[in-house]
Design a protein around this nucleic acid. Structure first.
Lengths: 166, 166
DNA sequence: ATTTTATGTCAGCCTTGTTGACTTTCCAAG
DNA sequence: CTTGGAAAGTCAACAAGGCTGACATAAAAT
């Protein structure tokens, strides 16, 4: 009976109600997650799409357009519009590939890196506060659940960031 | 020195690199989080906005328009567009308030509840799989970090869902 | 009687996603 | 060396879903 009780208890975290609460937690947390950068970007001519591009270019300097495309999960036309304005404004630089000259390798300029820092610092401040409030063990769990939630292709991208380096 | 070591180690989870990985985990996980309902909705005349409305109406039957507005964090014009189509299509019903007749209390019809179930089941399947893969302790941490990441107003809404009832 | 609140609606704008068609560049296989 | 096809860019058109501003109505509150 101890085993039965134990089994029952250990599966309580999989009840519909628990899972629903998790879904809602994701929804509300994501609002907070994007709130600070969004506030900074409003007023500038940029939006969330520009933030994403600048983030991942800053994170993987020299990445190609195609790679960025599959990380962001948007069409090249959509990304192109964003990249064009960022290049026009001198935040991003596209260098022709040396081995394959069809490829464009993307880099942040100093101005682009400055924006990246500004956005990242705001977002990291909130994330760090949440980490500190929850503690290291909670953070480990947080990361585990998020990783399990990703599509496999995205999980691969995720794993390659920094840890593996491009 | 044991204390110093301990302090140093326990703060490693707050390094910029760890925090950045958390940010990226949120980004990629959110893609997965919305992927299944999005797939179901494409082809229907509905989108993510309809999903959100249907979700929270199903979760808090009888909620008012104003309450839904502040949960979703959008303008009334934006929400109205969505609610109008849902009511025209007979998925949502707005009942005039009995005590305050200015208020509209929102309910799902059987048809609306059916859509809600379809979307919710897909989303819960992914979430449940992630929960199962990560385990109960990770799930607890996941929820803690997400709660800490929310804006206080949103955390209040979150707390009121089901646990407190509307 | 007046003001405030809850809701609905019209009109117009912006960002960011989409598809489709077409071009240019250029590596690599034949 | 020619050519097929991949990588990239561009143009046009469209849709979803945010936004603001202005205005209307009903009912509650003062």
């Amino acid at each position: 009976m101890a085993e039965t009780t134990n089994r029952g208890e250990s599966l309580l975290f999989l009840t519909d109600e628990q899972v629903r609460k998790g879904i809602e937690a994701m929804f509300f947390a994501y609002q907070g997650f994007t709130a600070d950068p969004d506030r900074i970007l409003e007023g500038m001519d940029y939006g969330r799409a520009h933030h994403r591009a600048v983030h991942f270019i800053g994170r993987s300097p020299g990445t190609t357009v195609n790679n960025l495309l599959s990380i962001l999960g948007v069409t090249k036309q959509s990304l192109n519009r964003v990249l064009r304005t960022l290049m026009e404004d001198g935040l991003v630089e596209a260098r022709v590939g040396r081995v394959d000259r069809r490829e464009r390798h993307l880099h942040l300029t100093e101005k682009g890196a400055a924006l990246e820092r500004q956005l990242s610092e705001a977002q990291r401040a909130r994330m760090r506060a949440a980490y500190r409030a929850a503690g290291p063990q909670a953070v480990a769990g947080f990361r585990q659940v998020l990783e399990a939630m990703m599509d496999p292709a995205m999980r691969a991208h995720y794993g390659r960031l920094k840890e593996g380096g491009p």
